[in-house]
Design a binder for these strands. Sequence first.
DNA 1: GTCATCACAATTGTATACGATATACGCTGC
DNA 2: GCAGCGTATATCGTATACAATTGTGATGAC
Lengths: 241, 241
Amino acid sequence: MAQAPRTQASKTEAPAPVKSETGEDRIVQKLASAIHEHRIAPGMKLSEDEVGEVYGVSRTVVRAALQKLAHMHLVDLKRNRGAFVSQPTVKEAREVFEARALLEPRTAHSAAARMTESDLARLQSHIDEEHAALARGDTGRALHLSGLFHIEIARIADQATVAEFIGQLVSRSSLIIALYWQRRAALCESHAHHALLEAFAKGDGVRAEEMMKSHLLDLLTSLDLRERNDVPQSLREALSE
Amino acid sequence: MAQAPRTQASKTEAPAPVKSETGEDRIVQKLASAIHEHRIAPGMKLSEDEVGEVYGVSRTVVRAALQKLAHMHLVDLKRNRGAFVSQPTVKEAREVFEARALLEPRTAHSAAARMTESDLARLQSHIDEEHAALARGDTGRALHLSGLFHIEIARIADQATVAEFIGQLVSRSSLIIALYWQRRAALCESHAHHALLEAFAKGDGVRAEEMMKSHLLDLLTSLDLRERNDVPQSLREALSE
DNA sequence: GTCATCACAATTGTATACGATATACGCTGC
DNA sequence: GCAGCGTATATCGTATACAATTGTGATGAC
């Protein structure tokens, strides 16, 4: 969604405070990035009053923002209890990557067929930025860029509906990775992205599909998804329901 | 999500007014069914005041409901203009069915592997109800049940994430069908569903996958998706943006 | 007669106020 | 000392009130 004009998508992020942004969207982005960058931990409570006070808006707009985040599964809304940053379970984590495995490989295939020179350049710049972020140790940013790479592919495939789903899944993946990532150092992702780009450059849809499939599999296996109930407050909540 | 206990899911629908349903959800369901049954036409404006007055709630809850519907792409929210019932374009219609083609066949495959006797019975009852609705000429209800059939399969596959996506896509499909359906009489769907059920009964995942794929293709080709700009107000809106 | 400008009306965006609900604490009774 | 229960508080759910923006119609100049 957020159908940003492709032409001026050179700046990878910071969609610019367009003109009249409804305050709600601002809060959504602030909270979303805070969650993605793991600055607020999964399970943490997001009190409406508190958030509103921090960002200088009323509860009305905070509520709207939290609802949107709940739709993206970044927060859980509990009736009369409040909003809590999502704590994806192991099962949910698997399901998210299952869904990605269903959508992304064939979307990559489609993208390969429609790929233009400017698309390739844009993807390349994504990778470059990702490398740069990694070089300076900013894994959070690298992770974010890595996600944008996937979303960009879906957009190139000219499948807005699927792209929206993928965007949602990537967002959740970000949270999942923050929770279950086990080898932070070996961020081999950028390599996989590079290989994908090569397939795209050759217009080799079949190979792109294969690369994407294995890339997602790699991602999944790099997570530590052993069952573990080590989240104390979640246990308490679980018992109280 | 909405992890309803599978055991007491015998009643196909009407999730029962649980205990304390937040008024918003009630409005969402009312409006959603009104849209699905085509009682309010695509493009129609949904004034907050008006809707609130009709259902006896304040604008606050109406706004929340409209936001939710917007997330499902059943209504379009235009800044400072209001909410309008979505008018899926031909392109969007194709994209929705593209997405379904990506998700549902393999989900059907997974479902076949996990299918239990009670699942089969439930699907059968869906089909029966669908037939009954068709017999009494209630195509709207039949269409709705037909959608639930697909959602139930995704649920059986035990893929909540994918099931949610499919639910969204089925919902949009309902709107699309209302707009682009060309041969209302020949609702051959129930036949396709029956064939699917047979594959499930045999535990033949491969065949289920194939059946689902062709079923979705049938559905798509039964739509009249020739380009046509016959929607005057949509043209006006398009120019004004 | 046509076009631009301005003011008004209608509707949404946001803030605040009130009522409902769930959790937590303290009290009484055993 | 501990279990059961009532109240107290904090937070959410909803309604209402105000501000901002947009669309429309009238008025006037060219």
